[in-house]
Simulated scan of single mutants.
Amino acid sequence: MELQQLTEQYNAQHSEKSMLEKLQFLAAEHPGKVVFTTSFGYEDQVITDIIFKNDLDIKVITLDTGRLFPETYKVYRSTLEKYRKPIHVYFPPTKEVEEMVTAKGPFSFYESLENRKECCFIRKVIPLKRALAGNEIWITGLRASQSNNRSDMTDFEWDEGNAIIKFNPLMNWSLEETIEYVKANHVPYNVLHDKGFVSIGCQPCTRAIQPGEDFRAGRWWWEQGSGKECGLHSLKK
């Protein structure tokens, strides 16, 4: 059966299983072809904890854009120290980054939506495609309540742009449930979360949010109506 056809089958057959059961099933059904992408936020740390504690055959990867917060690198290190398992890092292509910054300067993303999307594409989308190539399952830390663009998510989705099945194990979790898990299980987390940062990306493009603000208000805060997405999760089906 083709991968795309498996998406609906998995949604129908595994909806009642626990997150761990679903991850165990995927690792067994697609050996060596399952990857999880982490940016070390609350959500990703929950999934990392479950994968590493249960010694699942799932490759954990991260994208280093070259513009991350020092606090992000610290939780990266703390995660390596706690679990003693590898997290595979992927960097953006040097040539494209050099050409973009040479032509437009280090903060071109503030100048237009087109420039911002170009920067995200080079620093995130290109290395992601390299990381996903040859794999069959992509596990994400997305939650439906994070953004209006994610409100119609399902457990398993077909990502046409990457020709891969995307699995969203935290789809129905609330932020409160996520934080509770992290604290109850003593999982390392980014201390920026304690300072009002709920969604943490590149340092120049992320700020803390104020009480009552939308979850994604801290990402690309100078933009209006852009959807507040970087392109990693824009192609669903």
Results as ranks from 00 to 15, higher is better:
Phe109Gln: 01
Ile165Val: 06
Ile122Gly: 12
Gly134Met: 04
Ser108Cys: 13
Ile122Met: 06
Ala163Tyr: 10
Pro106Cys: 04
Asp194Gly: 05
Asn115Gly: 00
Thr140Ser: 14
Glu96Lys: 15
His186Pro: 00
Val191Met: 11
Pro169Ile: 05
Val97Ser: 02
Arg150Lys: 09
Glu99Trp: 05
Gln210Glu: 12
Leu113His: 09
Leu128Pro: 05
Glu118Asp: 09
Leu132Trp: 11
Phe197Arg: 04
Gln224Tyr: 07
Phe167Glu: 04
Glu223Gly: 12
Ile139Phe: 07
Ile179Gln: 07
Arg216Trp: 05
Val125Met: 06
Glu118Arg: 15
Asn162Asp: 11
Ser151Asn: 08
Gln224Arg: 14
Gly201Glu: 06
Lys124Thr: 06
Ala208Pro: 13
Phe215Trp: 10
Gly201Gln: 03
Thr154His: 14
Ser112Gly: 11
Lys117Asn: 14
Ala144Pro: 02
Glu213Phe: 12
Gln210Lys: 15
Val191Thr: 11
Asp194His: 05
Ser108Tyr: 09
Val101Phe: 02
Ile179Ser: 06
Arg216Ala: 06
Trp222Gly: 04
Pro169Trp: 05
Glu118Val: 04
Phe107Arg: 12
Thr140Met: 05
Ile139His: 03
Phe167His: 13
Glu176Met: 03
Ser147Gln: 07
Glu213Ser: 07
Ile126Met: 06
Tyr110Glu: 10
Gly105Trp: 09
Ile164Glu: 14
Asn149Gly: 14
Gly161Pro: 09
His193Val: 11
Asn149Phe: 08
Asn190Trp: 09
Phe167Cys: 14
Arg219Asn: 11
